[in-house]
Measured scan of single mutants.
Amino acid sequence: MEVRTIKVFTTVDNINLHTQVVDMSMTYGQQFGPTYLDGADVTKIKPHNSHEGKTFYVLPNDDTLRVEAFEYYHTTDPSFLGRYMSALNHTKKWKYPQVNGLTSIKWADNNCYLATALLTLQQIELKFNPPALQDAYYRARAGEAANFCALILAYCNKTVGELGDVRETMSYLFQHANLDSCKRVLNVVCKTCGQQQTTLKGVEAVMYMGTLSYEQFKKGVQIPCTCGKQATKYLVQQESPFVMMSAPPAQYELKHGTFTCASEYTGNYQCGHYKHITSKETLYCIDGALLTKSSEYKGPITDVFYKENSYTTTIK
């Protein structure tokens, strides 16, 4: 009895394709271990004539594949690729409408935090270190965002349907971005203890939790000093293409032309909904596939993004 075979390709990165001759009487799992086709788990399936010449994702289970996976995804987590594939199996079914010149995501599976993050990423200057993220990001900007969303979920250790947080998501993504040249110098002034300067680099240099107003941050924000008295913390120097200011959701007025974009969060910790506000020729609110415009805006804002380049204080 002759062994019926077909020729397929296996890959971990969709760049390096490895030619395989597979036995049609055995499952993919018996031949390769966990195997995925377009995100779908085909591990328990036997090869079919229609699979001839198709590319299958496999887990990096030998040295060659491990090197290829690390170079593309910059992670050695053995569960990463499987999590990416199972997320992709959902995100490829989502709709990605162009809204006001940006790629958004039609609401499904509690994905409003991903839509808000995706919209924000198209408006701030950011370059990702893992080629996987950078490639998928370019495709997302062009309207094909399924891979990018699935990668975000995998890097953030999230599953489809789980509630997510924009600030946490951005923080994970910033860790995989090139923020080497970003720098922030802060000064804390206390009447009792004097003053202390701190220099922050990388992710810490672009994120701040405690106030939404970048102007206020430049002037000074009140913080408790270690001595128990009130101290003032203010920005001395900022070198970065953008800054992200966050605070627990509270009524906040966004003035046209003073910011790049913002995240609105309605609801409580267990259950809520994100919308995205962007400042173009007027203010726009993007909620999944829905767009509304207004000249002014007041609502429960939790993150505001500002364009920056270089700032030095005039406070002496």
Score class of each variant (00 low, 15 high):
26 M>I: 12
301 I>V: 09
53 G>P: 05
290 L>V: 13
37 L>K: 11
31 Q>A: 13
77 D>E: 13
306 Y>L: 03
184 R>Q: 07
164 G>S: 03
177 A>I: 03
190 C>M: 02
139 R>M: 13
68 E>K: 09
150 A>W: 01
186 L>M: 15
288 G>F: 03
107 W>H: 03
64 T>G: 12
228 G>Y: 01
219 K>W: 05
126 L>A: 05
309 N>T: 14
250 A>C: 15
309 N>P: 15
197 Q>Y: 07
67 V>C: 15
116 T>V: 13
237 Q>I: 10
28 Y>H: 05
184 R>C: 05
41 D>L: 10
37 L>P: 04
6 I>M: 12
260 T>A: 13
264 E>K: 03
98 Q>H: 10
229 K>E: 15
98 Q>M: 11
33 G>C: 05
85 M>R: 07
148 F>Y: 02
100 N>G: 15
116 T>Q: 07
198 T>F: 13
274 Y>N: 03
14 N>I: 06
193 C>F: 00
66 R>Q: 10
130 P>H: 04
16 N>M: 08
309 N>E: 07
164 G>W: 03
208 Y>G: 09
157 N>T: 02
9 F>H: 15
313 T>R: 15
224 P>Q: 12
27 T>L: 13
101 G>Y: 04
23 D>F: 11
239 E>T: 11
251 Q>K: 11
82 G>I: 12
141 R>F: 08
9 F>P: 01
197 Q>H: 07
128 F>Y: 08
21 V>T: 13
106 K>V: 15
7 K>I: 08
237 Q>D: 08
271 C>A: 10
184 R>A: 14
217 F>S: 05
232 T>E: 07
11 T>V: 05
181 S>W: 07
86 S>V: 14
49 N>E: 13
214 Y>D: 01
182 C>V: 04
116 T>W: 00
237 Q>K: 15
230 Q>H: 08
107 W>E: 03
249 P>Q: 03
74 H>G: 07
69 A>L: 11
97 P>G: 06
290 L>T: 14
307 K>E: 12
242 F>T: 01
141 R>P: 04
52 E>Y: 11
14 N>Q: 13
254 L>Y: 00
207 M>N: 03
217 F>Y: 07
209 M>D: 07
156 C>T: 11
122 Q>N: 03
128 F>L: 05
104 S>Y: 03
127 K>G: 08
36 Y>G: 05
95 K>V: 11
101 G>Q: 06
158 K>T: 03
225 C>E: 05
261 C>G: 02
204 E>V: 06
271 C>E: 08
135 D>A: 10
121 L>N: 03
4 R>W: 11
189 V>F: 08
